[in-house]
Design a protein around this nucleic acid. Structure first.
Lengths: 142, 142
DNA sequence: ATTTGTGCAAAAGCTTTGCACGCTA
DNA sequence: TAGCGTGCAAAGCTTTTGCACAAAT
């Protein structure tokens, strides 16, 4: 699906369509949420020789092209996911690390209010909440 | 203010009150938002010999003691801030990096709804929104 | 043919770990 | 004085950079 738009976006900028770029985009689409490391692992299953350096460079490129975005979940590496279509808010469990999702539209009222009152325009496709998921949160405090 | 509670919390666990721990906590309180690196710089102005290792170890300790928390703003290092009292939501400008703040209570309705409908309990003192601040967002798209 | 893209290797950051000495209690 | 805490140095990771070769157009 986005394969074709990848080709177009690249061509429009005089950049080249390569197997690596297709595979990396596909991996991000398939994985849903993934760190560069995880993308690397996934891509390697199909094309063993792809270097981690290429993962980093390509994710950055895909982000510039507007095909993927990244968020910062928990410690460490950012996680990438497809941009556009399936925007979602991440609900990250501090306890077990599980990642739930939520409709970004639920943020609309708040986002509108922030824009109006503080002039800050929230990117509602790039939000993560930390907390405790249903499995971990029962009966606990804090 | 929290100095005394630091002493108490440490004693309660058989840990020791040191100059470094006091200085590091003070730096976090003073700086508002700070990466380990920034805390290090601040502490060094008072006590030149303090090692970055101690900053890391102490921030982790202070977090365990419940005196500070950290969030992930933008790429790279986490930023620490005092826990409790002045909870706030960070509004991080993707363009200029400015950090605005917002009342966490504005998140209450959403947090309640999430707890009710998805069983996810948002830590509203540990939230960051990315987007464009008033200065950078005018007239831009994306 | 050009010129971009990739792999490899090394560098650069940031964070953690091991260890011996110093300091708190 | 007993044991925790710190500084120092080195190791570990993740991410970035430089360069020569490979590949796409």
């Amino acid at each position: 699906m986005s394969e074709s738009s990848l080709a177009e976006l690249l061509r429009a900028r005089g950049l080249r369509l390569t197997a690596q770029r297709q595979l990396i985009l596909q991996a991000v689409l398939d994985l849903g949420h993934a760190t560069p490391e995880q993308v690397h692992t996934a891509v390697r299953e199909v094309a063993a020789g792809v270097n981690i350096t290429t993962i980093y460079r390509t994710l950055e490129l895909l982000e510039r092209l507007g095909l993927v975005t990244h968020t910062h979940l928990s410690h460490g590496s950012p996680t990438y996911h497809a941009a556009g279509e399936d925007q979602h808010v991440h609900l990250v469990c501090r306890e077990c690390g599980a990642i739930d999702e939520m409709e970004p539209e639920l943020l609309r009222p708040l986002a509108d209010r922030l824009a109006r009152e503080q002039g800050f325009r929230v990117d509602i496709g790039h939000v993560s909440f930390f907390g405790l998921c249903g499995r971990c949160g029962n009966g606990e405090q804090e």
